[in-house]
């Protein structure tokens, strides 16, 4: 599974990068530079180890800020030693990132160039500015090409390859479909919403996935709320399955179970779940055809 997502070579490069940074840190004379290089090495090691974690939920934190700031501050502190890193601003731009970050990146690149050009002759500083601008444009164009991909990542419906864990947008699609299907097939389907604390969310999702049947899925509504659609033969079967499911889950949580036979919207139910005072609320309505 690892090699399929090119994680191994990526992780190896991360660790190599961290090693080289540590080496540079050992040789650095300025204390501030040393600290920054160690910081960079630690960040790379952290990224390499927490890699799996970042695959679980799509993150929207602007982590691209870290390398940009590190690069800019190193160039500011020791422009002569790190002059050859100036061009790396262009490569940082190829990562798709929010537009404010792109602007910030360009600003920092200009600032760093200003710092470096103090040591250059006029013609060299002019030509380096032009080349840097061209390279950054090249980087931006490449990021434009990958932007749809990046948006696809944050909007992908399945959160992790190989698991039955899906996004809220998929739940919104599945809700009307399952409700229509249970009507037609005369089965009983209910929406189960589980609200827990942030840190229990992942383990709860795993436990939930283990308990579900192959045709049922676990959805992540937000950072603390999980959902599933429980499909059973009839209402007695549903009660039996629901009790078994809830008994097998551990950890603090609030649960809300609503039969799909009731008219419902996901937003309203999530709000009701957040406000409900009891730990377990079950809204059952015997379907009209039963």
């Amino acid at each position: 599974m690892d090699s399929k997502y090119k994680t191994r070579s990526f992780r190896l490069t991360l660790l190599f990068g961290a090693g080289v940074l540590a080496l540079l840190a050992l040789r650095a004379t300025q204390e501030a530079v040393q600290a920054l290089l160690w910081l960079g090495a630690l960040w790379l090691i952290g990224t390499a180890t927490l890699h799996e974690l970042s695959q679980r939920w799509p993150t929207h934190t602007p982590w691209q800020l870290v390398p940009t700031l590190l690069l800019a501050s190193l160039l500011w502190l020791s422009p002569l030693q790190f002059a050859c890193w100036l061009w790396a601003f262009a490569i940082l731009l190829i990562l798709p990132q929010p537009w404010w970050l792109v602007t910030f990146n360009i600003l920092l690149a200009t600032l760093s160039w200003w710092r470096v050009q103090a040591y250059l002759s006029t013609e060299q500083s002019m030509s380096s500015a032009l080349i840097l601008a061209a390279l950054m444009l090249l980087g931006l164009i490449r990021s434009l090409y990958y932007r749809p991909l990046w948006q696809g990542i944050s909007e992908r419906v399945r959160l992790m390859p190989g698991t039955r864990l899906w996004t809220a947008s998929q739940l919104l699609e599945d809700l009307p479909r399952e409700s229509a299907r249970s009507d037609r097939e005369a089965t009983h389907t209910e929406l189960v919403l589980l609200r827990t604390q942030h840190r229990y969310c992942w383990s709860l999702a795993q436990a939930l996935s283990r308990q579900l049947q192959p045709f049922e899925h676990c959805y992540r509504v937000d950072g603390r709320t999980l959902a599933t659609l429980l499909t059973s033969r009839d209402i007695d079967h549903a009660r039996q399955r629901r009790d078994a499911l809830l008994a097998s889950l551990h950890g603090p949580r609030r649960t809300r179970v609503i039969s799909l036979a009731c008219p419902l919207t996901l937003d309203a139910e999530c709000e009701a779940l957040a406000k409900q005072s009891r730990d377990l609320v079950i809204i059952e309505k015997v379907p009209s055809h039963a």
Partner: peptide, 9 residues
């Protein structure tokens, strides 16, 4: 690392 990250995504 930057292009590799892109490829991984």
């Amino acid at each position: 690392l930057a292009p590799l990250e892109q490829r991984r995504q």
